[in-house]
Simulated assay, not measured.
Amino acid sequence: MCRSIKTLRPPYTETVTEEDVRAAALQFVRKISGFRAPAAHNAEAFDRAVEAITRASEELLGALEVRGSR
C-alpha cells in the first residue's frame, strides 16, 4: 500500500483536517490508477474518485470507536 498515507485515527493522530483526509484519498487514487496526474480525458473520473474516497474516509473516521477514549 502507499507508504506515504498516514494513519488518521487516534491514537496515531489526534487532530485530522479535511486536507489530511483529502491528501490520503489523493495518494490512494494515484496508487491504484497509476497516474500522478491524469490526462485531460481522465481528469474528471480521477477527481470524482478522489472526492468519493474522501467522503468515504471521513464517514469511516467519524464512525470508528477507539477503545479507551471515553
Rank of each mutant, 00 (worst) to 15 (best):
M1W: 10
M1L: 09
M1F: 03
M1Y: 07
C2N: 13
C2K: 12
C2D: 14
R3E: 14
S4C: 10
S4G: 06
S4T: 07
S4D: 13
I5M: 13
I5L: 04
K6S: 11
K6F: 02
K6P: 00
T7Y: 10
T7S: 14
T7W: 06
L8A: 07
L8V: 07
L8C: 06
R9N: 13
R9Y: 15
R9D: 08
P10N: 02
P11C: 12
P11D: 11
P11V: 05
Y12S: 11
T13W: 00
T13R: 14
T13I: 06
E14K: 07
E14Y: 04
E14W: 03
E14N: 03
T15Q: 15
T15C: 01
T15Y: 11
V16E: 07
V16K: 03
V16A: 04
T17P: 05
E18A: 14
E18P: 08
E19Q: 06
D20G: 14
D20N: 14
D20A: 09
V21N: 00
V21L: 08
V21S: 08
V21H: 05
R22M: 12
R22V: 02
A24F: 02
A24S: 07
A25E: 06
A25C: 04
A25P: 03
A25Y: 02
L26A: 12
L26R: 14
L26N: 07
Q27Y: 04
Q27K: 15
Q27M: 12
Q27I: 01
Q27S: 12
Q27C: 11
F28T: 01
F28Q: 08
F28K: 02
V29E: 08
V29H: 04
V29M: 07
V29G: 04
R30M: 11
K31H: 10
I32D: 12
I32R: 09
S33D: 04
S33F: 03
G34C: 09
F35R: 11
R36V: 13
R36M: 06
A37V: 14
A37T: 15
A37H: 11
P38Q: 00
P38N: 07
A39M: 02
A40F: 04
A40D: 13
H41Q: 13
N42G: 00
N42K: 15
N42W: 12
N42V: 08
A43Y: 06
E44D: 11
E44A: 11
E44T: 09
A45R: 12
A45N: 06
D47K: 12
D47W: 02
R48L: 10
R48I: 02
A49P: 00
A49L: 12
V50C: 06
V50E: 02
E51D: 15
A52H: 00
A52T: 07
A52D: 10
I53W: 05
I53E: 11
I53P: 00
T54P: 00
T54D: 07
R55W: 06
R55G: 01
A56L: 10
S57D: 07
S57C: 10
E58G: 04
E58D: 10
E58K: 09
E58Y: 01
E59T: 15
L61G: 08
L61T: 01
G62I: 08
A63Y: 01
L64H: 05
E65V: 09
E65F: 02
V66N: 00
R67H: 08
R67F: 06
R67K: 14
S69G: 00
R70T: 11
